[in-house]
Design a protein around this nucleic acid. Structure first.
Length: 221
DNA sequence: AACCAGGAATGTA
DNA sequence: TACATTCATGGT
């Protein structure tokens, strides 16, 4: 995967689908909650769970920190893995409360690298979730590598499937100008493309980013 | 009706 | 480091 390929792919996706305006949430906390809820889960189910969570009055740092895990789990049941995710949400809220007085803007005032390390130290926040929070909630430059990204790059024949998360992230960051909006749009476009086309059509028939996406084996996942 | 969806933690070797 | 298991709902 060359740097030119990375830049060219963005241009094709952007030409095909236009601006995406991600993340689909109203405020930074909703981005974080959504990022945790969507782990290995369809966005449709996440929207359902977010609605129920809000209607239960639990969509705030204070409410999540104060609520018992079982009540959170009940509210987010539609998202799947609800017990595990309830623990993650409560852990995040508790961490934020103890360490930063429950104020997201204080945590987000950390330098980007330190902020990423802090996020990765929180139970339930892995690399993808941390990068999603960095870009879409904290508005810091980073890049999200997810299943859609690996699937697309594999189908394009640009990767062999053994690359680590950090390696792929570094490839994108190294090939592009450091621009939060660009990074956010790029990932959103990859997801959009994955949902719209390549998943439904294994042979990539009618793929809007042809000719670079023109069939081939689905190598990863 | 099997298959999959915008992962992460934990345990084993 | 590398790989398996667990967590669980809802749409197609």
């Amino acid at each position: 995967m060359t740097e030119n390929q990375v830049r060219d792919l963005f241009d094709r996706l952007h030409a095909a689908y236009g601006p995406q305006g991600w993340w689909p949430a109203n405020d930074p906390l909703e981005v974080i909650v959504g990022a945790i809820l969507t782990q290995r889960t369809s966005w449709r189910n996440v929207e359902h769970a977010m609605r129920d969570l809000k209607e239960s009055g639990l969509l705030s740092v204070g409410a999540l920190d104060g609520a018992v895990e079982e009540r959170i789990a009940e509210a987010i049941q539609a998202a799947g893995f609800h017990n595990a995710k309830a623990r993650k949400l409560k852990t995040f809220a508790s961490f934020l409360t103890e360490r930063f007085g429950g104020d997201l803007s204080i945590m987000f005032s950390l330098p980007t690298d330190d902020l990423r390390d802090e996020l990765l130290g929180i139970f339930g926040v892995g690399e993808e979730t941390a990068d999603a929070i960095l870009i879409y909630a904290a508005e810091r430059p980073s890049f999200v590598i997810d299943a859609y990204t690996r699937r697309l790059l594999g189908r394009l024949g640009w990767i062999d499937g053994n690359e680590t998360y950090g390696e792929l992230r570094a490839l994108f960051l190294g090939a592009l100008p450091c621009d939060v909006e660009l990074f956010g749009e790029y990932h959103a476009l990859i997801v959009r493309h994955g949902k719209a086309r390549c998943r439904a059509r294994p042979d990539c028939a009618g793929c809007p980013i042809r000719p670079i996406c023109a069939g081939g084996e689905e190598i990863v996942r």
